[in-house]
């Protein structure tokens, strides 16, 4: 039942700046089960973004390994990494990061461009995903014609395009007011409930974190032993 979808082993990231070593992550051992909705909390500079980038194969660790769906991604080359990013990971950013020249539905279709999914199928799936995030009426709008919350919902639909194993969201509510942020957190919970995608959200907002099922803490690049349960009960609950 509790299948591990994501695991890190002694994950360490060291930056060097001006001869000084910065331990952004030190020996992080993390285990996430399939279908979890997890928040990672921690003060600014604690290494949250660094961790998420490494989990999402955007960045490489200095040492240690990341295992996604049984694959040690730290051993992959650039091509293998982009395959993982394409098929296993969905990213949601704080700044939404939609492509401005594309409409909402085109943004959602974009990740499918590098796959074998036939064209008509892409359009159909993109429409379903927009429905899922409650934006069926906004498909043809460009990002600048959408509100911040709507843009983030398009970004979430885009993250889901290739049916990833995990959605990684770095401060997805950071650019939103608290009410909209709450909606987004609840939407993520709903998606987790409906399709069972594993979701990891980074935030330093206590209230947002509490809307997930499990809360982890990062401090000075170290994962704390203590963990908290959130209010989200998930599919099991």
């Amino acid at each position: 039942m509790n299948e591990v979808v994501l695991k890190t082993v002694n994950l360490t990231k060291v930056y060097e700046r001006g001869g000084k070593k910065i331990h952004a992550l030190s020996d992080v051992n993390l285990q996430i089960n399939r279908g979890d909705y997890v928040a990672i909390m921690g003060p600014s500079g604690s290494g949250k973004t660094t961790l998420l980038n490494i989990l999402g194969c955007l960045d490489k660790p200095t040492s240690g390994s990341v295992i996604i769906d049984g694959t040690d991604v730290t051993k992959l080359d650039e091509k293998g990494l982009s395959e993982i990013r394409r098929n296993k990971i969905g990213f949601v950013f704080q700044a939404f990061n939609l492509i401005p020249i594309l409409s909402a539905i085109e943004n959602v279709e974009l990740p499918m461009e590098c796959t074998k999914i036939p064209k008509y199928e892409r359009r159909k799936r993109a429409r379903q995903l927009l429905n899922l995030v409650g934006l069926s009426g906004r498909a043809e709008h460009r990002p600048h014609e959408l509100s911040a919350g709507e843009q983030q919902r398009v970004a979430i639909a885009r993250a889901l395009a290739n049916k990833p194993s995990i959605i990684l969201a770095d401060e997805p509510t950071g650019n939103l007011d608290s009410k909209t942020g709450e909606h987004i957190m609840k939407l993520l919970g709903l998606l987790n409930y409906k399709i069972g995608t594993t979701i990891i959200v980074v935030t330093h907002d206590q209230k947002m974190a509490s809307l997930t099922g499990r809360i982890l803490f990062l401090e000075d690049g170290k994962l704390l032993k203590k963990e908290k349960k959130g209010t989200y009960l998930g599919r099991k609950g």
Binding site: E78, K79, S82, R85, R86, F91, P111, R158, N162
Partner: peptide, 16 residues
């Protein structure tokens, strides 16, 4: 640059 980063993040290869 940012757009290139986004494309890479959603799975575009360097070649494409």
């Amino acid at each position: 640059t940012k757009e290139i980063g986004i494309l890479k993040a959603i799975g575009f290869t360097g070649n494409s």
